[in-house]
Design a protein around this nucleic acid. Sequence first.
RNA 1: GGUCCCAUCGUCUAGUUUGGUCUAGGACGCCGGGUUUUCAUCCCGGAAAUCAGGGGUUCAAAUCCCCUUGGGACCGCCA
Length: 472
Amino acid sequence: MNVRVRFPPSPTGPLHMGNVRTLLFNFLFAKKEGGVCILRVEDTDKERSKKEWEQDIIENLQWLGITWDEGPYRQSERTEIYKKYLEKLLKENKAYWCFCSEDILETVRQEQQSRGEAPRYPGICREIPTKEQEDRIANGEKGVVRFIVEPKKVSFTDLIRGEIVFDMALSGDIVIAKDMETPLYNFTAAVDDREMRITHVIRGEDHITNTPKQILLWEALGFGPAPLYAHLPLIMAEDHTKLSKRHGNNSVTRYRQEGYLPSAIINFLALLGWNPGDNREIFSLQELCKEFSLERVQKSPAVFSLERLDWINGEYIRVMAPDTLLKACAPFLPDTASMNQETLAAIVLLQKERLKKLSNITELSEFFFAKKLTYDTAILPWKGAALKATKNSLEATLRILEGIEENDWNKERLETILMPEARKTGDRGAMLWPLRVALTGKKGSPGPFEVAAILGKEKSIARVKSAIEKLQ
RNA sequence: GGUCCCAUCGUCUAGUUUGGUCUAGGACGCCGGGUUUUCAUCCCGGAAAUCAGGGGUUCAAAUCCCCUUGGGACCGCCA
C-alpha cells in the first residue's frame, strides 16, 4: 500500500507541542512506510483562522525538520469541491436544511441534559418537505445543512486500540455546513481524506468520537473503504488534563525562544507515547524514522514533563560542535559587540555543560560582560575563613597575578603558576575560592583560571582589587 | 448525566500478544558518596511501583477472564 498521511493543523493559534507530537507521529509513520505527508490547512472557520498562524505553523514545522511532500492545501480554497458533495447529499436526501434558531437548540439541549440524556438534535426540520426547504433558502432565509445520521452501530478497528463500536442511534443529525460556502470540520475532513487519497488517519484521542461521524459521511458519499484510523494518547499537563492554553504558553515559538533545540524537542516528543522497546533514550529524527512503529505506541495519556525536556535538551547541547553552539547562543549573549568572536566562543564553550537551554547562557555569563560586579562580600571567604585572612589571601594572589606577563595570561600558564601557591596553603580552596568569587561575583561558576584567562589581565586584576577594597 | 478510551515507581516507560527466567528492569527528578577550589559535567550508590482494588482460571498471573474503583476525552452553526 502506498501510505499517505495528512498534517491537518487549524491556523487558529500558534503551533503548539500537542500539535507537533501528532504531526511528528504522522511524519515518522509515513517515513517508516516509505509514504508521503500532505499538509492540509484546516481553515474553514473564517472568524478564527488567521494567515499569521498559518505562517507560524509552517515556519516552526520547517524549523523542527518535519517536512511534507504535498501542499499546503487550504480548505478555504476548496469551497467548490465541498459544495459539489454538499449538493449531492442534499439531492439524495441524505442531508437537509435546518432552520432552528440557536435559542431553540439551546433549550432542547438543556432539557435533554436535565433528563440525563446525551444532547442531540431531535430532527425537527427533517420533516420539512424538500421543496419547502429549497424555497425558503431561495427566498433568503438563513439555514444550516444537517447530515442525517443513520441510527445504526458503526465500528472501526483502531490501529492502536483495536475495535471500537459506537451506537449512532444516540447521536442526532449533525451540522455539516453553515451554508453552501461554509462547510464544517467533519464534512471537510471526510471529503479531503478521500480527495487526497489518505490511507492512514493518525490523530489525537480527542477525535475518537468524530470517527463514526466521518465514516457515515464517507459511506453516504459513496467513497468506498474508509482510511485506517489510529488515535494517539493525549499529552496532558501536570494537572492531568489535556494540554491547553490554560496551562500557559506551549507554543513551539516559545520553546524556540527559550533555546530548546529542534532535535531535543523531537526526541522528547517522540518518547511521549512511544518507545523503542529497549533502554535507549536519545534518538535523531533519522533514527526515529527507521524505528518508529504504531504497534509500540502507548494507549494511555502521557504527562508533559519539562524536567525531562530540559535533560534531553542539555544532552543535545553538550554534544554540539563549538561553532554551532556559538551561533546558537549568539542571540542569548548579553553583549556580542564588545567582545571578539574568539572570546565569545571561549565563554560559550566554558558554559556548555551548564546549559539546560540556550537562554541559560545569559544569566550564567553576565559576569563576563559586567562593568562592575555586585555581590555580597560575605560570599568571599572560603569555608568559614575570617575576612582578614581572605583579604590577605587575595592580596597575595594579586601580587602573583601582577607579576604574570601578558603573554603568559592563559588558562594553562595561570594554573601552573597559581596552583603550586594554592597548594602551599594546605587547602587550595583558601586561595582559589576567594579569587574565583572576586572574578565572578558568584558562589557557583567555572573555575578561576578559565575565567581569568577569558577576562584578561587588566580586568582580572581590577576585579581582585575591587574585592580587596570591599573587605576593608 | 450519556458515550468512548485508559490504568506498572512522583513522571516517561520495559515487561502483557506467545502465563514461569519479574524477590518488576531502564530513564528523568530526588537523596547520598566520589572526582573537583565552587557550580556544572562525569562516575558510583540509594529511596521510590503489595503491577488501581476485589474475585476467578491455573501447579504458576503484572501478564488470561469478570466485577468494582479511579482518571481522561468527547457530547458546538470549533477543529
